[in-house]
Amino acid sequence: MEINKKAYEAYVKEVTPVHKRWPSIFRAFLVGGIICTLGQLCTSLFINGGFEKEVASAWTTLILIASSVILTGLNIYPKIVKFGGAGALVPITGFANSVVAPAVEFKSEGQIFGIGCKIFTIAGPVILYGILSSWILGVIAYVLMAFGIL
């Protein structure tokens, strides 16, 4: 074919429709904001109920995760993400969704090779590189503290 691969790539980019940027950002902001407001509401209610701040945060996290798990099971969370994009993926509810979805999907392949092996297929990289980067930052902080800079 006379058209080369590079020219084809550029041409394809031209004819492929993409999501509009600003509406997407607005929806992400809206959905992310609602999730965080609900989280804050939980925390405030727990604190008003006499819980310590840390205990209140822990309960809030649990509630958010549980809600996401239930909404995933009911096939509602994917619809929220479809609308809100990163606004629904970045909060802890999105993380919970990424763990539960494979667990549900691969249940048919058994407890070990199905759920056991595949539960972290999406969340695995986040966990691995999350731990790795906090370890690196820990080493940096340790070195800086040893030299009295921090």
Binding site: T16, P17, V18, H19, T72, G73, N75, Y77, P78, K79, I80, V81, K82, G85, A88, L89, G94, N97, S98, V100, A101, P102, V104, E105, F106, I122
Partner: peptide, 11 residues
Amino acid sequence: FPLGYGNQRPY
């Protein structure tokens, strides 16, 4: 992705 996983499909 697994069916329950939320994501946005491109056009």
